[in-house]
């Protein structure tokens, strides 16, 4: 009973927020996607693993797509719910062993703060479900990200930004530090709808 009430309460609160927040003078809905590639240093965090490893860390590459179907911008701050899809390559061969490549997917929460006209900062966090493909094994990871963004330009309702994400991926026995570069595009839905309404009323 308590759980049901809690679910109803949370749903109601979410609906109220979603209805009221866009009424804010500077509120707008946006939709976007970003693509980034990173260098990843997988550092053993358990003493057992570190003891058997002859290197302090192993190098991998990661490619990631972050999809933000609907984000809410209030003033200079954008709140987004995102879906992250990520592929981490195998590590570079060392002797005859290497770390396996894996896929990861997870829902993320993101906040983007526009500092001035061209520079911003995005911070995000997620819980990732990861899996090794041929081995049919899965594991989880917690991923937190901070990414300075630089506005490259805008075109009608589209905005393009350059990002440089720094990610910390916490896995069992491994901390992966990832530094990368990427592109971020978002579309201002509210502005587009306003323009469309104005066009009709002329």
């Amino acid at each position: 009973m308590y759980h049901r009430l809690r679910h109803i309460g949370l749903t109601f609160l979410s609906l109220v927020m979603l209805t009221i927040l866009p009424l804010h003078a500077n509120a707008a809905w946006t939709s976007g996607i970003s693509l980034s590639s990173s260098y990843s240093a997988a550092i053993p965090t358990s003493s057992g693993l570190a003891d058997q490893e002859s290197l302090p860390f192993r190098s991998q590459a990661a490619v990631q797509i972050d999809m933000a179907p609907l984000s809410l911008r209030i003033g200079s701050v954008t709140f987004g719910g995102e879906l992250w899809l990520k592929y981490t390559s195998r590590s570079i061969y060392w002797g005859n062993t290497f770390y396996r490549p894996f896929w990861a997917i997870g829902p993320a929460a993101s906040i983007h703060i526009q500092i001035n006209d061209s520079i911003g900062l995005q911070v995000a966090g997620t819980a990732l479900f990861c899996w090794y493909d041929p081995a049919q094994q899965a594991f989880a990871a917690i991923d937190v990200m901070a990414a300075p963004t630089f506005r490259l330009g805008s075109m009608v309702h589209n905005v393009f930004e350059l990002t440089s994400p720094i990610r910390f991926e916490f896995r069992n026995q491994i901390l992966a530090v990832q530094v990368g570069i990427g592109l971020r595009w978002y579309y201002n839905i509210s502005q587009a709808m306003d323009d469309a309404t104005q066009m009709r009323s002329r």
Partner: peptide, 11 residues
């Protein structure tokens, strides 16, 4: 089945 964990091996 295949061994689990982090590693793969070049034969």
């Amino acid at each position: 089945q295949l061994i689990r964990g982090l590693y793969d091996l070049v034969l």
